[in-house]
């Protein structure tokens, strides 16, 4: 076991981890933030995406022992005190989801995109979520939700 201190959503999370444990596993099973999903555990579905110092990464491919010293943001860390993040709101309003399993990962990837590029084109949006599967096939409305959130943020 290695003792580490993870900084997740601004909070200190001291935790003991084994070398082979992924960050996704530790976030879910040891810290209890189950909004981060683990669909494939090999970087092929996108549902475990979280932000490392603002950049999206697959937490299933990140060793937890090697996660100290960064600011991590999960889906639980993006809403305001009284209101949802604009992306969360547009995903609800525009039906950017069906079963909802890919939703946290999609929103996290979209957040990183909009922070880097507030005026993305549709193809830029699609490329930003290229590594994310939605098995329900909601791509039309996921893209729409992201485009609408960008527009709301600009106005």
């Amino acid at each position: 076991m290695n003792s580490i201190n993870l900084k997740i959503n601004g909070e200190d999370c001291p935790v003991d981890v084994k070398t082979h444990w992924s960050l996704a596993y530790v976030i879910r099973e040891k810290i209890g933030l189950t909004g981060t999903k683990t669909g494939c555990e090999m970087g092929t579905c996108g549902s475990c995406t979280i932000l490392m110092d603002g950049k999206p990464v697959f937490s299933c491919l990140r060793m937890a022992v090697d996660a100290e010293g960064h600011e991590w943001t999960t889906i639980e860390g993006i809403e305001g005190d009284d209101e949802l993040h604009p992306l969360q709101q547009t995903f609800i309003d525009d039906h950017g989801m069906q079963c909802g399993y890919c939703t946290p990962g999609m929103i996290i990837a979209a957040k990183a995109l909009l922070e880097e590029n507030p005026e993305p084109t549709e193809s830029e949006v699609r490329k930003a979520i290229a590594g994310h599967l939605c098995r329900c096939g909601t791509y039309v409305r996921i893209v729409k939700s992201i485009m609408n959130a960008a527009e709301i943020a600009r106005s």
Binding site: G43, G46, M52, K55, P56, V57, F58, L61, A109, G131
Partner: peptide, 9 residues
């Protein structure tokens, strides 16, 4: 390589 998360890692 389209997967942004992989490119970041």
């Amino acid at each position: 390589l389209n997967i942004n998360e992989v490119r970041n890692m």
